[in-house]
Amino acid sequence: MSVILLVEPDVMLAQTYCKALQSAGHETHHATTAQAAIDAADEHTPDIIILELQLSAHNGVEFLYELRSYAEWQLTPVIIQSYTAPAALAAVAGTLTANLGVVAVLYKPRTSLQKLLSTVQEHAKGAA
């Protein structure tokens, strides 16, 4: 079981993801904005973060830089699951993985719940 922070602006979608993650035995917390996500990370100390890049006000990349500026969150794996097409992220893939600790990039419209769960499982605490 992992503690998962879901950063997702759409509350309907967030409820669905949280239910699927809970059914797999994970504890979930949800934030709609980058600021709320920082607060939630501080409060719940997540093992994994699932992040949408397109957020209102501060975007997901700003959130990542903020997150990585704190010593305790340097190694927390981040899975990007976004409406931003993978091709649009190709140019910054190196920065995302090498500098910002992104372990997987998923294109939200084509990512099933099963795929999300297996990706989380792959990077969950204690995964082989």
Binding site: P9, D10, V11, H30, A31, T32, T33, Q35, A36, A40, L55, S56, A57
Partner: peptide, 9 residues
């Protein structure tokens, strides 16, 4: 949509 996405939880 905007209101739901921008509000604190």
């Amino acid at each position: 949509e905007a209101r739901a996405a921008s509000a604190a939880n």
